[in-house]
Amino acid sequence: MNHTLRLRNVTKIFEAENGQREALDAINLVVKLAEFLCIVGPSGCGKTTLLRMIAGLDYPTSGEIILDGKQVTGPSPDRGMVFQEFSLFPWKTVLKNVEFGLEILEVPEKGRRRIAEEYIELVGLQGFEHSYPYELSGGMKQRVAIARALATNPSLLLMDEPFGSVDAQTRNVLQEELLEIWARTKKTILFVTHSVDEAVYLGDRILVMSPRPGRIIECMRVTLPRPRKRTSREANELRERLLMLLGSEDRKIHKG
């Protein structure tokens, strides 16, 4: 199966009290199998909206989102999503959280337990199966969220600034772990972030978006070999390039 995600002329207009707000303008995009795609842009550029529409939590005003030849019409465990924070079910243990998607799919108990335990091990939390979210650190919680999203074996993994709420150290560690998980599971990942550093470290391609209404200004290929050095010359150049792009867009608004 060719897990390709295709966005064709996707536009999103929000209705507000004082008229209409155009959030996304004619987005065209193709995502390849097993690709790690990062999306960066200033606040309000619509990157989260874009991700949500791919997840099926929102819908485009015009245009199409097609996955595997079929139109996306609503949420599904086939498109896993990791939110930034507070997404774990606080009344469930780590194990039960990770099992959740499987439970809804009515996978029998023994089977789903085994699968969940596998993914818990994958994210490095073995031993914490029976802990509750309130007992975990921010970084651990996000690991659980990743395990949970992966447990249903989705075609796509959508991540909305998943490491935005943890401290810098933990963030770096989680990035490395995510790359390891990606290497092992070979998932197609769409990763939205504010952080240029993060995008450069993680992505095969980086989509740069303009401020509202969001358009794709540039689609940058990152050919740096993995494992990447955060402070290599090439990485620095890329970062500079990105910042300039984003900065000039920023200046455009402020001048305009």
Binding site: P75, R79, M81, F83, S87, F89, I104, T152
Partner: peptide
């Protein structure tokens, strides 16, 4: 019920 939990439920197939 927090929106993020509802949406998490949705993306995990709780429709």
């Amino acid at each position: 019920v927090p929106k993020v939990l509802v949406e998490t439920g949705k993306v995990l197939g709780c429709i």
